[in-house]
Amino acid sequence: MSKNRVFSIALFLAMSLFLSLSLQAAELKRIDLEEVLTIGSLDDDLIFQWTGVVVDSDSNIYLADAMDYCLKKFSPEGTLTKRAGGRGQGPGEFTAPRLLDCSEHYLYATDQGILGLHVYDCDLNFERRIMLNIPVSDLKVLSDSRFAVATLFMDTKPAILIFDDRGELVQEIPYANRKMAPMMDAVSFDIDAGGSLYLAYTFQDRVERWDSQGKKLWSTQLLGVKRVKRKNISTYVLPTEVMFKDVELDSHGFLFVLGGHVSRNRSRDVYVLNRRGTLLTILTLPEASHCIHIDRNNFLYSRANEGVTLKKFRMHYVFD
């Protein structure tokens, strides 16, 4: 590699870092959403009920559709280019497709009814299944050879688990020092380039940042909930109100947390925090969504029409 090339890359990285830090330092006033793409309407057969979404480096959009048990690939313009899957338990088949994420070369999908991960290439050709003996409640792919999952522990301390591409556990990042009551450890999470872990608790008014060694850096409440409502269900006492549904980082390092049942606009309010856990602004989605996704170009994706439609928004960051 020539000196000029090395210098160019170093300059680009330095400028990116500077820009990111500058954006963090400036006071974010609000974020405006501009709808740029809609996929799936009430009249077509493109999407029946999407559950997971991810966007690759070429801006192709992948959806998991729970109703017809398929994965679907759409071009950046929203044209369906490939469909894969179907109902069953054979290779590449689903009983309830749920979460999606991708690395540079592979797409990973979870099934609510089958343990482990389905692995596809970027053209939705089924490659293999990674066996895991735990249910996956959230998934984040870190590279072609690493992925992180959240699970629901009943007997052990809560932790985010990092696996290699053969399903071997390579790291465990605990996010509590003790066992929690049933379901209270349920989280959505994201991981930044430095390995910091951002957690949004499903049934607690808590958003946290932990370092890669399992040290808590900050914890904040966004909803002012004092007491978690619970209900006796069978032999368990379980929480009934979802506080946070999803968490995503954008390329600037802003943290986006989708609120649930307790938010002022139920399942529509997205709380935007900086890296230090300070709430900067709240943006409101046009319709309720079960999750959000932010691609590497900072487009935000969310649900509409109860999962029949996917919306893509350009985010306009407005600073003071």
Binding site: D45, F48, M67, D68, G307
Partner: peptide
């Protein structure tokens, strides 16, 4: 629409 997907799937 969801029912249609369910029946097809």
């Amino acid at each position: 629409k969801k029912l249609k997907g369910f029946m097809q799937g």
